[in-house]
Design a protein around this nucleic acid. Structure first.
Length: 739
DNA sequence: TACAGTCGGGG
DNA sequence: GTGTACGACTGTA
């Protein structure tokens, strides 16, 4: 027997039996271990059908153990099941596919789980966990112990060897000629045309550097398929896989509907024994980078390559599965219970969602914004809301109104059990970030971790109400929003009792004002009072020098809950719902609006705002002149839009469909969920795709249309100044009219 | 005027 | 490996 300690890189099914584990050992070796790891799935249903299944399984050419068992289903309680344990985890997916065909009437459990999650539930592993392993001479694991916890904030960083590969152009718009490679030891540029040296040097680099993590740009969708094809064509093997028996696994590209929009996910290339991340195919890479991906992997237990490419919904779902496995709760494929039909009034009351209040339109000074900390997840944990704990005998919104609940309290539900440590870790991270210098070397890492958690927490709420979620139940979802409304109303009452004016309420935030209150300590009594009345954590998001809530465009008297902007005392600008926040705003317009906001931000109070007008007037004149004299770089006119449907599904010639058509005829087709770049043009067609290959004649740009967009963006941010009927009103009006 | 299409939010 | 809300807003027919 040999002993090893190191970091766990990856776990996957062995092609014959058990699992493969890769350890980055403390002696610097990367070792591959194997371990027997039988997996069990269950089936429930009428007993004669279960007998049929039993006979069917006995005939399968697989090593399998069958038994009758009694297990706990989260929704229906104790259930008689057939338990089947098979020796090879890799044999389960094809077997299960067959079973759903022949036994569609049976309910299956634990049948479609990632092997890494099963392993995690038993051995408490997670990607990059510190492990101690006892293995025999054939590197078969006899004992494994995890030495740290996924909830540790300051964990030892594994000495990962990283290789980055980047082409010199975006392959979907221009043909790259070279690729740049960078590792700790090497730095080289390879010519894609010269195939022999390309393959030779790449092979050499992979062997010499032996990277753990290969970070590419377009590696999934272009580079790795290209290189692997080439290597096959030239019969020159490239050691992308570290596992000698391992296969490169491809996942197909797809478009799907999620988060209320079509999402496109490119083809994926997964490696064995090494980790491949394509930063262009990594979810929210821009938000949290590699640190965030690694943190997602730690808390969800999903393999690094997988977690990088899935939505946070899959992440939170993985966490729930691990909790369920640890508690010996059956994991369903999808929700089986049928939703009870509701009357119209019930629908109205239950589905009101988050609290939205009409803000008081206009400009306000010395306003504090207080936000509940991860309100919905905090509610789930605090009030033990979970599919199995929410009672159905009473309508939940009535229950919540008094915060005396019919929610079962005696034992912590599956969802709160999953969320509590995550909430706590995020809370600790946020507190540390607040009290540390931006230049602290851990600052960036902490921010990335907190950002990763944020998405898991946000999605968890949505998953409660999603009918296909494994552990979703609409009543639990409604209970959360009911509590949310109650909590916010209590916060509002607390504010009013303490003499604050409540300007706005929005889901988990509140904007309050009191003459003379402009320092953090002025708001502390309010925070304490809200904490006392709601028992939920709340914090001061900031104090605005001034903030403006905007009216609806079609009716000046109607407020919209999420169109506002303001400047905090520290000079930070916050905007919501206005042009700068929108992805379809061209850079030229976004920059101009931001510059105006920056000019306005120099004002220390509302009165000083008008002093900024000469500067803003100059700025707008400059922009107008630039616009009309052709001094704006063409790319600043580009509008980015998401492709929502296939070309043939468009009913009218929208800019997007026009651009899609042009791209199609240029041989470049885009799929729903991908983003299209276009410029508005004069005459017909009204838009032109940016990436058709030929350059755009600057005279074709629809300058009047961009001028209208500019005018509107300027109008938005000057609106609060025009609304007050002050003496300088005419000046501003003139300015806007000039446009 | 009706309808078709797109966006935000949460940080 | 999964959230088909909802309302504001814009542009086209």
């Amino acid at each position: 027997m040999n002993q090893y300690s190191g970091w766990l890189l990856d776990i996957y099914s062995h092609t014959e039996r058990g699992v493969v584990l890769w350890l980055l050992c403390d002696d610097g070796q990367r070792r591959r271990f194997r371990q027997d790891f039988p997996v069990t799935f269950y089936a429930a249903g009428p007993s004669e059908r279960l007998r049929g299944l039993w006979k069917f399984l006995e005939r399968q050419p697989l090593r399998m153990e069958l038994s009758r068992d009694e297990r706990r289903d989260l929704f229906s309680g104790s259930t008689i099941v057939l338990a089947a344990t098979i020796e090879s985890p890799c044999a389960l997916p094809p077997l299960f596919q067959m079973l759903t065909r022949y036994f569609p009437d049976l309910i299956f459990y634990n049948a479609d789980l990632h092997v890494a999650l099963r392993y995690a539930a038993i051995y408490k592993t997670f990607p990059l966990a510190r492990c101690h392993v006892l293995a025999d001479e054939q590197d078969a694991i006899h004992q494994i112990k995890v030495l740290d916890s996924k909830w540790d904030i300051d964990h030892e960083q594994p000495p990962l060897r990283v290789l980055t590969i980047e082409p010199d152009a975006d392959p979907f718009h221009n043909k790259p000629g070279k690729i740049h490679l960078r590792s700790q030891k090497n730095n080289m540029t390879l010519d894609l045309e010269k195939e022999t040296p390309l393959l030779g040097l790449l092979g050499y680099l992979l062997k010499q550097d032996d990277p753990d993590l290969i970070i590419t740009t377009y590696g999934d969708t272009w580079l790795l398929p290209l290189l692997l094809n080439l290597s096959e064509k030239r019969d020159h093997p490239l050691p992308f896989n570290r596992d000698p028996d391992g296969q490169v696994s491809y996942r197909k590209e797809r478009s799907y509907f999620a988060y209320n929009q079509v999402i496109y996910r490119g083809q994926q290339v997964h490696l064995t024994g090494r980790l491949h991340l394509d930063i262009r195919n990594t979810v929210m890479y821009g938000d949290y980078g590699v640190d965030g991906v690694l943190e997602m992997a730690r808390v969800t237990s999903l393999p690094i390559q997988t977690v990088a490419r899935v939505s946070p919904g899959t992440g939170i779902s993985a966490m729930q599965i691990v909790t369920a496995l640890e508690n010996e709760i059956l994991v369903p494929l999808r929700k089986e219970q049928v939703e009870r039909t509701k009357t119209a009034s019930e629908l109205f009351h239950d589905d009101m969602g988050g609290t939205v209040y009409d803000p008081i339109i206009g400009l306000h000074e010395d306003v504090a914004e207080v936000d509940f900390f991860s309100m919905y997840p905090s509610i789930m944990v605090r009030f033990n809301i979970s599919p199995e704990t929410v009672g159905t005998e009473k309508k939940t919104f009535e229950t919540a109104a008094g915060l005396t609940s019919v929610v079962k309290r005696e034992e912590l539900g599956l969802i709160p059990q999953t969320l509590a440590p995550l909430l706590e870790k995020r809370f600790d991270l946020k507190s540390r970030v607040l009290s540390m210098s931006k230049f602290d070397c851990r600052y960036k890492n902490y921010k990335a971790q907190a950002a990763a958690h944020k998405w898991l927490l946000v999605t968890c709420f949505g998953y409660l109400g999603y009918k296909n979620a494994r552990f979703g139940r609409i009543e639990a979802h409604e209970a959360v929003t009911a509590y949310g409304r109650e909590v916010l109303l209590r916060a509002k009452e607390a504010a009013e009792d303490l003499g604050f004016r409540v300007l706005h309420l929005y889901v988990d935030g509140m904007w309050v004002q009191k003459p003379g209150s402009r320092a953090a300590q002025d708001f502390q009594p309010l925070l304490d009072e809200i904490k006392a009345r709601t028992s939920l954590p709340i914090a001061l998001d900031g104090i605005y020098k001034w903030v403006a809530f905007l009216s609806s465009r079609w009716n000046k008297k109607i407020a919209v809950p999420n169109r506002y902007f303001g400047v905090f005392q520290n000079g930070e600008i916050k905007t919501r719902g206005i042009e700068t926040r929108r992805h379809d705003t061209p850079a030229f317009i976004r920059e101009t609006q931001m510059q105006i906001l920056e000019a306005l931000a120099k004002a220390s109070d509302a009165k000083e705002l008008k002093d900024r007008l000469p500067e803003i007037r100059r700025l707008i004149r400059e922009k107008q002149t630039a616009l009309h004299s052709g001094h704006i770089p063409l790319e600043k006119f580009i509008v980015h839009q998401t492709v929502s449907r296939k070309l043939e599904d468009f009913k009218s010639p929208s800019p997007v469909s026009t651009a899609l058509e042009q791209l199609e005829s240029a041989g470049k087709s885009l799929r729903p969920g991908q983003s299209v770049r276009l410029v508005y043009t004069l005459g017909m067609p009204r838009a032109r795709a940016w990436d058709v290959g030929t350059s755009l004649d600057p005279r074709r740009v629809n300058i009047p249309r961009y001028r209208r967009l500019l005018s509107r963006a300027v109008d938005t941010v000057l609106d609060p100044l025009t609304g007050g009927g002050r003496s300088w009103l005419t000046q501003v009006e003139q300015l806007v009219l000039d446009l």
